[in-house]
Each structure stands twice: as C-alpha cells, then as structure tokens.
C-alpha cells in the first residue's frame, strides 16, 4: 500500500485521490466533518451557490424509489456572500481541493458568481443541469448552442479551471460534452440527476411537492457509466464521474469507463462516512487487482 499512487490530475490540478463529494449531498462540509477528517478526500464540492440566498422548493423534497432517491430541493442556499465569508474559510482548514458548484438564474449571474469566487477555490463547477429550478439549471444544459455560449462566457470570468456539470436528460450526451469543450470547459462532471416522478396511488398525489424531481442512486448508475464511457471516447477533457456510487467497486467502474475522479452523492444521505468508506474499499480493489497507480486504469475498460 505504501507504493500506491492514488493521485489524479484534473485540468492541471493534482487531487491526492480520486474520491470527491457530489454537490448538494454534502452541505458545505460542516456536518460531515464531524464524522471524518475531510482531508481524506481528493476534493469536496460545495452545495450549489447562487448570487442571492435561495429558499428552494416546498416540502416534501425527497422520496425513496426502488434503488434510488428522488429529490427536489431547488438549490436552497445562503448565497455567494455567505459562502465566501463562512463556508469557504471552514473548508480551507482541510487539506483537500475545493470545487465551488455555481448555479445562477442567468448567464450574467453565473459570470458574477465566478468573478466573486476569483482564485479562492480550486475549481468552479458550472451547474447547467439542475432539474428542479425554473430558471437556469437544466434549461441551460440541454441545448448544445446554449451550452457552448454559457461555457464560453462564464469561462472568461473564471480564474480557476472550469468544470461543466452535464445533465443526462438529453438524447445525445456527446453532443453536449463537445459543445462544453468548444466553449472552453477544462473538465466535465457527469451525470446530474435524471428527471423522475413518484405518485402515491391511494391519494393520487405525487410524493414531491414539486411533482417531479431528480433521480439519483444505484438506479441511475448504468446510465451514468454509459455516458461517462461515451463522453470519454469522444472528448479530450478530464471527467468527474458520478451517479449511484455506493462502493469502491462502483468507483472503479466509473474510472474504467473513463473518469479521472468520482463523486459520491446519494451514498452521503445513507451514511455520513460514505465517501471515506468508498475510498477505503477502492484502495482494497486496487490492492486486490495489483494496481499501483490509479491513473493506469482511467478509461481502461476492455470494450467489445
């Protein structure tokens, strides 16, 4: 284990290991840091940041489905000012990279948030894939022309590498990924949640107050792995893969498909130590398979 090289590179920045948290499942680290040292992780991703504080959607905001979870939080957060003043200094106490997930209502708002973040974070992750808000979110992420435009314009205001987080709610994920690359993205995150719905058949009412929500968890994992694989083959950008990673072997699957790092999301809702547990299991996988350098298995799937 001593000669195990867990480090990976995302857009010129080295992560000490490929395990990252997914936005919105980790708060801004305050709570989960009471369960383990965040310095164990390669990077942490903030909850989506908007320009002004945002209330989010009415409850219920969550429903469990077979092997999955539907949520419609609607980007509730305290805004960029609060993030810079309180959340970020706290995250900076840990030896881990910080990815700021941003989700403005408009392109201009995203540019403004990116500008205010400046070089204070290690990466900016542009969320153009949230299915639970009326403005911004997935509305930006399903049309390649808009993806190209927003990526280019936000990129101009970023002092750090820009990761674009893609929505799976599209016919051709490669087309969207290519548009983000042409727009100047330095890395890609995929996938965000799949738009879904659950109905209580006795009351005939949807469980979520917002009617629909984003599906995550093991149920979406095969879709996510497929999309990572397709994008990795066609786009020359590092990928942070995510979607239902619950174990070290799940993490390995994404990396073999072509991801340079992986984000743990829904699993954080199940157990606070999930990302740390998955990291330990991933190390076991590497040892068992005599892999000394994680980088050796990025995209190493032996496809037919």
């Amino acid at each position: 284990m001593n000669n195990l090289d867990m480090s990976v590179n995302i857009a010129g920045i080295s992560l000490k290991n490929p395990i990252v948290t997914a936005s919105g499942t980790f708060g801004n680290g305050w709570e989960i840091s009471r369960y383990y040292d965040l310095s164990e992780l390669g990077a942490v991703t903030s909850k989506a940041i908007t320009l002004s504080p945002k209330q989010g959607n009415p409850p219920p905001r969550i429903a469990e489905t077979d092997s999955g979870v539907l949520n419609s939080v609607g980007l509730q957060n305290s805004g960029i000012e609060f993030f810079l003043k309180y959340d970020l200094p706290n995250l900076r106490r840990y030896d881990t990279k910080v990815i700021a997930n941003i989700s403005g209502n408009t392109i201009e708002e995203n540019c403004e948030i990116a500008k205010r973040l400046g070089g204070e974070v290690d990466f900016i992750e542009l969320n153009i894939s949230c299915p639970n808000v009326k403005q911004g979110g997935v509305a930006f992420g399903t049309d390649p022309r808009i993806v190209y435009d927003i990526t280019g314009r936000v990129r101009e205001h970023c002092s750090v590498p820009l990761i674009v987080k893609l929505s799976p709610n599209v016919t051709d994920i490669v087309e969207i990924a290519v548009a983000a690359q042409k727009g100047g993205a330095n890395a890609l995150s995929l996938i965000n949640t799949l738009l879904g719905m659950k109905i209580d058949v006795n009351t005939r009412k949807p469980i979520l107050a917002n009617n629909t929500g984003g599906l995550s968890g093991p149920a979406v994992k095969p879709v996510a792995v497929r999309m990572v694989w397709q994008v990795a083959k066609n786009v020359d950008l590092p990928i942070i893969g995510m979607g239902g990673i619950m174990s070290g072997e799940d993490a390995a699957e994404f990396i073999l498909a072509g991801a340079s790092a992986v984000a743990v999301g829904t699993a954080n809702l199940v157990t606070p130590t999930a990302a740390l547990d998955i990291k330990k299991q991933f190390v076991q996988y590497l040892v068992k398979n005599k892999i000394k350098n994680v980088k050796d298995i990025i995209g190493a799937v032996i496809a037919n």
Binding site: G24, T25, E31, L269
Partner: peptide, 12 residues
C-alpha cells in the same frame, strides 16, 4: 420526509 438526518442534504 428526511434524507441524511444531519443537515447536509436540506430536504426535510
């Protein structure tokens, strides 16, 4: 209806 139970996910 609750998710993480510790304040990370903001669903409840």
């Amino acid at each position: 209806r609750m998710g993480c139970g510790i304040g990370s996910c903001a669903v409840c």
